[in-house]
Amino acid sequence: MNDAIDARSVALAGFGLDSLIELGASSVVAWELIEVPGGCRGLAAERGGVAQNPD
């Protein structure tokens, strides 16, 4: 962000801010998947997306 301020580039500052938002959003998704028993499969089955293997 300092580089964007030094260069007085609104586009570079916007790109940096967007990257921070994306990082935060992906962290929330990862956190949610970790908390669900069974990981992705458990979450999908919980929401009716896919059937779990009977193994």
Rank of each mutant, 00 (worst) to 15 (best):
residue 8 R to H: 03
residue 44 A to P: 08
residue 6 D to E: 04
residue 25 A to G: 09
residue 5 I to G: 03
residue 29 V to L: 09
residue 15 F to M: 14
residue 13 A to D: 01
residue 8 R to N: 04
residue 40 C to Q: 15
residue 55 D to A: 11
residue 42 G to L: 08
residue 25 A to H: 12
residue 4 A to N: 06
residue 8 R to L: 01
residue 49 G to W: 06
residue 48 G to M: 02
residue 49 G to E: 11
residue 17 L to T: 05
residue 48 G to I: 06
residue 42 G to P: 08
residue 22 E to W: 02
residue 20 L to F: 01
residue 10 V to C: 03
residue 46 E to G: 10
residue 9 S to F: 02
residue 55 D to F: 01
residue 21 I to N: 11
residue 41 R to P: 06
residue 11 A to F: 00
residue 48 G to D: 05
residue 36 V to K: 13
residue 3 D to W: 00
residue 55 D to T: 12
residue 29 V to F: 04
residue 44 A to N: 08
residue 38 G to I: 09
residue 50 V to A: 05
residue 53 N to C: 05
residue 5 I to Y: 03
residue 7 A to M: 01
residue 22 E to R: 14
residue 16 G to V: 00
residue 34 I to N: 15
residue 25 A to M: 08
residue 26 S to V: 07
residue 54 P to R: 10
residue 42 G to C: 07
residue 13 A to C: 03
residue 46 E to R: 10
residue 30 A to E: 12
residue 28 V to R: 14
residue 9 S to A: 04
residue 38 G to D: 12
residue 34 I to R: 15
residue 36 V to F: 08
residue 51 A to I: 06
residue 34 I to K: 15
residue 51 A to K: 10
residue 20 L to G: 11
residue 7 A to C: 02
residue 13 A to M: 04
residue 1 M to N: 06
residue 29 V to P: 05
residue 18 D to N: 14
residue 46 E to H: 10
residue 11 A to W: 00
residue 46 E to F: 05
residue 41 R to T: 14
residue 28 V to G: 11
residue 55 D to N: 10
residue 43 L to I: 09
residue 45 A to E: 13
residue 20 L to A: 11
residue 3 D to I: 00
residue 51 A to F: 08
residue 15 F to P: 03
residue 39 G to N: 13
residue 47 R to M: 09
residue 18 D to F: 02
residue 1 M to W: 00
residue 33 L to R: 15
